[in-house]
Design a protein around this nucleic acid. Structure first.
Lengths: 408, 408
DNA sequence: TGAGTTTGTTGTTTGAATTGACAATTTACC
DNA sequence: GGTAAATTGTCAATTCAAACAACAAACTCA
């Protein structure tokens, strides 16, 4: 008998309820990616009947997920179609537990960051402390939510390897955490569904939802930060997670014979060759924000600095080339200080990149810097509960609702 | 309005027909992967009702896709369940256009190779000649098929980069083909649906269906042959193809600073470091079959040969490590002469591999040699039309059926 | 042999999508 | 300004795939 290990989701049969749920999900998914759409557009995109769309939208309205509005302005021949938009009162908490501070935000289905707060982390942060800080901020913000707001869960961005299915932080070198059950711990404190993932993977999701990669469904994303280089990959619209959720450790691919170590102690890797601290050093800086670093990179005329930039650009180009050969993506997004390297000399980067890719793979790919955005990880983390909700829209009626008289 | 570029398959709504087709597809998919199953097992695996399974199986019987049989032997308490098996009369043609010869086979849904023929290729093979040779063999075999046999299409394995959706061979260095519309050409001659893909990707599919990776759905596959190193990747049961079908060029990832060129002229790549021709050279051989090469590798006591093996093993380990960091697979399969390197000193390979992977990613992965199988590419190529049929089982009634009185 | 268990079948029910008819609302053109 | 054409929304009736309930069939076990 096919046991559970061998069977996949597509082995399961579907009944009428699954059908309904899928169609509701398709509508919410379209609205999430494209914003407001008319019922006529929904009809065309899904291929469903007008009547069906009418029924489905009515159900989504009852669930409080969408609202309808008359279209303003001329729409062409025929009766104008009603616009459908996602409600702004359905929100997720986004948590980013980083080395220096914990940031928590409230993000709605439109990707708007409604609130945001940051609290510095103490030294030697333990998982229990981190969960406590995150939960304190969540409680504080939850009290300020307007009546009628529906909370669908918490998404957490962690700098480390995460076993997504169990909510387990397998290894987070920045905090020296090993096997911390962050998800279950925060779920216990907050009472909310908690989803966690690697921070770079969530940056990638954010770029797909709100940023440079909105139009693409095959994406390679590289992020360079103070703790190294991380990555995220989207394949045919699906996030690459791997068997246990550890996939897309793109910073740790070995690209040279060098003995330089990266932040995880591996030698010759992309992360070992492309390092923010060496950029700061050749620029004579101790610390810098992303914006300051980028300004300094673009302004310098130190030959030593330029040589270092070029060396890092060449290494980065090899990394990008490897990923293009492997994934054949439509777009490669360079984010964080990698974007600054790109901007410093993108011709050099692209030329080196082309030297190391097959002709066919390189021909349609776009390499581009990411949109610098302070809310990137808030949006990305919020995507986790949002995607969960989109898979199963009618589950929203079980989610907590802020009570009280609704403002008008 | 969401245009066709931006919309994905999951955006489409589903109706009752899609529901039915999905459930039929789920049954055929289960039978393809697990072989004969009882109706009770199908009920349990799909979660559908007994009555529904009964209906679905009846429809598949009408389509000629399955047959039922009484279970032999004791089955436990209660009325014994009827066994359902895929028909052996539904077949696909498998074509492997390689440098030296074209091989064509007839493969049924059970993965059995019913016929197989090989014809040497002339020098300077053009796409037109290759298509002609393949079609000649197909015509010849088609005439020998038993009455009642249903043909679902042709699957073609090509040593090169393939734009799968269009059936275009984008670049095949072995033949020096550029932009050859192999799929449409063979479709025109044969009148059958034709699907083509890279040979290594199809080797991976075959290992998943019939070989070492039957139990897994996250697979990295590396094949080493006379024309270099190719790869295939399966993620959550889905083949990695990338935006245009060029993905999984795993042989061309750069892993060192070496100036050695691979067969596509890229330097420092896995394919440049791990080469069959250098194995032959240090062993003092001119040519060898896979079996002969493996025997020679395992038997030699030449220090020069052993040093070469070790160097190649170390390079291979880095390549495997990179892929594990990127994909977090359940299994890595080394095939062709890479299997011989593995067998020569797997401890060394695994030790080097562990040095270059993150702790979490390496802990559950299995690295194993592939099953050497002369029919590997036949089975893999046949998987293409078979997968297409599984997606849409009722389409089989439109496929050609060999007429005549059926033998009994 | 009879109780208990599991599977297959038949007739009926359920409910999600579709169909067809008609009303509502806009643009295009005389 | 008036009318035709086009498009969209809504209602009642229809369709049909899956589920349900009840019963028959076929096995094991004591």
């Amino acid at each position: 008998m096919p046991n559970s290990l061998l069977s996949t989701a597509s082995d399961r049969g579907r009944n009428r309820e699954d059908l309904r749920e899928h169609n509701l999900s398709a509508l919410v998914g379209l609205l999430h990616r494209f914003g407001t759409l008319s019922r006529a557009q929904l009809t065309a995109s899904t291929g469903l009947n007008r009547t069906t769309i009418s029924n489905l939208v009515a159900e989504l309205k009852d669930l409080g997920l969408v609202y309808e509005s008359q279209s303003a302005g001329p729409t062409g021949v025929g009766r104008p179609s009603v616009n459908v938009s996602l409600s702004g009162d359905v929100v997720a908490f986004a948590v980013n537990t980083a080395l220096d501070a914990t940031t928590v935000g409230v993000v709605n289905l439109l990707g708007q960051v409604l609130m945001k707060a940051r609290r510095p982390n103490p030294a030697n942060l333990t998982p229990a402390m981190a969960v406590q800080i995150a939960n304190d901020l969540i409680i504080h913000m939850r009290a300020k939510l307007s009546p009628g707001t529906r909370i669908i869960g918490v998404g957490v961005a962690i700098p480390g390897q995460v076993r997504v299915a169990e909510g387990l932080v397998r290894f987070a070198p920045a905090f020296n955490w090993i096997n911390a059950p962050f998800g279950p711990m925060l779920n216990k404190l907050s009472g909310l569904p908690v989803f966690i993932d690697n921070d770079a993977s969530l940056g990638c999701l954010a770029e797909r939802t709100m940023g440079s990669a909105r139009k693409f469904s095959n994406i390679v994303y590289l992020f360079g930060g103070t703790n190294g280089v991380g990555g995220g990959v989207v394949i045919d619209g699906q996030q690459l997670r791997g068997a246990s959720g550890f996939a897309s450790e793109l910073g740790h691919i070995r690209i040279s014979d060098s003995d330089r170590e990266d932040y995880s102690g591996l030698v010759g890797t992309l992360e070992a060759a492309v390092r923010r601290d060496r950029l700061l050093k050749v620029l004579g800086l101790k610390t810098a924000t992303e914006d300051e670093l980028e300004a300094a990179v673009l302004a310098t005329d130190s030959l030593e600095a330029i040589a270092e930039f070029q060396e890092q650009i060449d290494s980065l180009a090899i990394g990008v080339a490897n990923l293009v050969n492997i994934f054949n993506p439509q777009i490669v997004i360079l984010s964080g200080f990698l974007a600054s390297l790109f901007k410093f000399d993108h011709d050099r980067l692209l030329e080196e990149f082309r030297k190391h890719t097959l002709v066919a793979s390189q021909e349609e790919v776009v390499v581009t810097p990411g949109k610098l955005n302070a809310n990137l990880l808030m949006v990305g983390a919020a995507e986790l509960p949002i995607h969960k909700m989109i898979e199963n829209p009618s589950s929203i009626s079980d989610m907590p609702l802020i009570k009280g008289r609704r403002k008008i």
